[in-house]
Design a protein around this nucleic acid. Sequence first.
DNA 1: TATTTTTGCTAACACTGTTAACTAAAGTAA
DNA 2: TTACTTTAGTTAACAGTGTTAGCAAAAATA
Lengths: 199, 199
Amino acid sequence: MGIAERKLRHKESIRIGILEAAWQLVITDGWQSLSIRKIADAIEYSIPVIYNHFENKEAILLEFTKEGFEKLAETLGEVKAAYADPAQQLAAMGDAYWDFAFDNKEYYQLMFGLGIPACDTVKKVPEVQEMTALMISTIKEAIAGSKNPEADYFLKFHTYWSILHGLVSIQMIESGKPDVTKKMIVQDAMAGFTKALVD
Amino acid sequence: MGIAERKLRHKESIRIGILEAAWQLVITDGWQSLSIRKIADAIEYSIPVIYNHFENKEAILLEFTKEGFEKLAETLGEVKAAYADPAQQLAAMGDAYWDFAFDNKEYYQLMFGLGIPACDTVKKVPEVQEMTALMISTIKEAIAGSKNPEADYFLKFHTYWSILHGLVSIQMIESGKPDVTKKMIVQDAMAGFTKALVD
DNA sequence: TATTTTTGCTAACACTGTTAACTAAAGTAA
DNA sequence: TTACTTTAGTTAACAGTGTTAGCAAAAATA
């Protein structure tokens, strides 16, 4: 009865093919010009086949959004593990966040940029919470060891994430500045934040 | 020879009609669903008429982007004028920036969100520099009166804007949180920034 | 071998931005 | 007023988009 398995494998291989073809197209032409027809063309199947594996185009994009947040969470987790001091963790995680965004522009733009309807992305993508949980725990630890242990961790987390995202997105729409100063900007901002946090 | 003038007036009135119709459509249905056909329908002219007044759809969006940055710059200018102390100015401008974003979501999303190709927006929209100039001058003044007058004003400006934009956009994709805490987040972040700036 | 299920295709619908080609109106000059 | 030229506005089409209904062929089951 390996038939069912073989079929499943085949189905799965098409699914993967769709995602790989889509990703290739994104890499070469950007999100904007990704289309179902192009994907169908690339995998050498007809258009409706894609709809057997994904409900619609958005579902394909959602898949990448998930992947993106997963990768980001993984990266941040590793970086966090490399340090013991929460303040150092926050600094390193900020650095890593920045690097991730620019090393994976395609992902980052999809995760935040493309979707004005990103409002509900948060609900549809549990991976977001994976990432935020990491940040929140670190913030909590930092607060616990600070001179102001009563600080609102959720507020501080929000500030932390916002600073990072803001830095990244402003940098992305302005890209064309010297490369050296870039990193300084993050580090300066992070230093300011941590200083205010730890008091 | 008032004929030419009348014609010009008429032409201008259509142009305005296009923008007004477009704006109305955006208000009711959002940017995503704005289409040339719908605009043509609304102004009761055929489609190509729109192309006599705007090179393409993007040019129409660009018009609103300009408007948005103009409004924002104006608002920030007024707020700045209401205070003498740079630190206070920065705080008030941050507040105003936040309010602008949420009072004019449609504008803000267009100015930053919709355009992944927003990279060249900065070049195409001189109004952006109007706004940034305001911020930069205030930052400069604040630095001049701080304990560390050697600080890099451009870096600090960048941080300031990024924090604001980050706060806004994270808030926008997360909207669904209690309203009261929102303002606190900005003010907390701004306080942290100013503190680090003035030393 | 006959029947059912699955798989994948063609062709279409309803949209999108954009433009070429034409008509009818308005303005100009004789 | 008539003849010509310009311009304003139209219809109809092109090339593309996401999505789906209906059908043919292949594969699995009885």
